[in-house]
Nucleic acid binder design. Structure first.
Lengths: 211, 211
DNA sequence: TTCAGATGCGAATCATGGTTCGCATTCCGT
DNA sequence: ACGGAATGCGAACCATGATTCGCATCTGAA
């Protein structure tokens, strides 16, 4: 928590509003549109008030990252513990997980796009590392789940295959879903309809796992 | 060609020097390090001389893109026409092409990183489209080559599989090779040694093609 | 050789957006 | 209801980096 802790109740509201606005503006206008005045205005505040709470803009955006990925990780944890995933065959499980990944990207396109760009171009190595850590928690859990079906995996190195496959899948998906500000990358769109995406990616992933 | 055409011979040299320096500085210091003064200094020129040749910085960087991708496309064309690719079985061909892709990324890491960032964050849609066009020429040719072995492809829609597979491969590779300023993405590096990369990706691609 | 146009120079200017700071207002314990 | 701390305000300030422009020098055709 890099924000200066509020002492009065009203300022807690201010803080929440600020973070919510930062998120909203980042999602709506992208990284370059999210200036401090824009965020302050969206929150109904003045620039000065932003700096009353945060030492600088970087601290604010970091906090947005932190919260966003924390929320995502929590949602992911909760979802993966749902009973429906237990005892499901590998193929069905993989399909579900991949669909969920796509749905997540679609749901948070704007913000993900802005934050990924922010992280990637941030000069502080430690921050980049940490952000990567946070966002990869979900992949780790998915991998754990898939590895419970190790017997169905033909690849000579099942653990490596499961994790590397998920990683490369998520990388490709990131480019497909986030690189174009308008939506699905046009070159993907012209190759297949968006609803076929999960199917093809699952096919690829399973093909890889089966050896 | 967006540069103001030179009338005297010496200024052709200046132009070449400028483009070479822009490329060098972009590759060495990244997009944010490639300021106009930095580029001018590297070329042994003053800022004013840059603006004598280019209306603005954007025109200069676009020209660098144009040349770089044109060069890449030419190299790719030449390489794919080499006799060694003719009549090779699908698996071997795929492996060679993927290794070549990786080699290309490795060889031009710095510049590719800077240019991709520039393109992705450029507000001009048409320019993004064009850059994508240029850089995808190589993939199209690889796809054509692979499709000569259509009989070896089990996937129910061979053409779609070949092209979509290459596309998603190149997207993933872009993230793996370019997202970290230091080198191979750390999460990939901790999963497998770099020399195994081509093998695993080939395995995945072939698994996908075979259905 | 001459000179008009081309080239090169770099200090000054401009634009953008982050950050500061003195003042006004609000809160809350006494 | 008082008074000091906390909060909020926003015009002014500052840093960065792109761009301009008047001047000096060079080139090459006549």
């Amino acid at each position: 928590m890099s924000a200066i802790p509020p002492r009065q109740e009203r300022s807690q509201r201010t803080l929440d509003q600020l973070l919510a606005s930062a998120e909203a503006v980042l999602a709506r206008d992208g990284l370059e549109g999210a200036t401090v005045p824009a965020i302050a205005a969206h929150a109904g505040l003045s620039v000065g008030s932003v700096y009353r709470r945060f030492p600088d803009k970087d601290a604010l955006v970091r906090e947005v990252c932190e919260r966003f990925f924390e929320r995502g990780a929590a949602a992911n944890r909760a979802s993966l513990e749902a009973a429906r995933y237990q005892g499901m065959p590998l193929a069905r499980l993989a399909r579900l997980l991949i669909s969920a990944m796509i749905a997540g990207y679609r749901q948070h396109r704007g913000l993900l796009r802005a934050l990924h760009l922010y992280i990637r171009t941030h000069e502080d190595r430690a921050f980049r590392r940490r952000a990567d850590e946070l966002s990869s928690d979900a992949l780790r859990r998915m991998g754990d789940l898939l590895l419970l079906r190790k017997s169905e995996i033909g690849h000579p190195r099942p653990e490596r295959a499961v994790r590397f496959g998920l990683l490369q899948l998520s990388f490709a998906l990131r480019e497909m879903m986030l690189s174009d500000p308008a939506g699905l990358h046009p070159r993907v769109a012209q190759l297949l309809p968006e609803e076929d995406l999960a199917g093809e990616l699952t096919r690829m992933y399973l093909g890889f796992l089966s050896g």
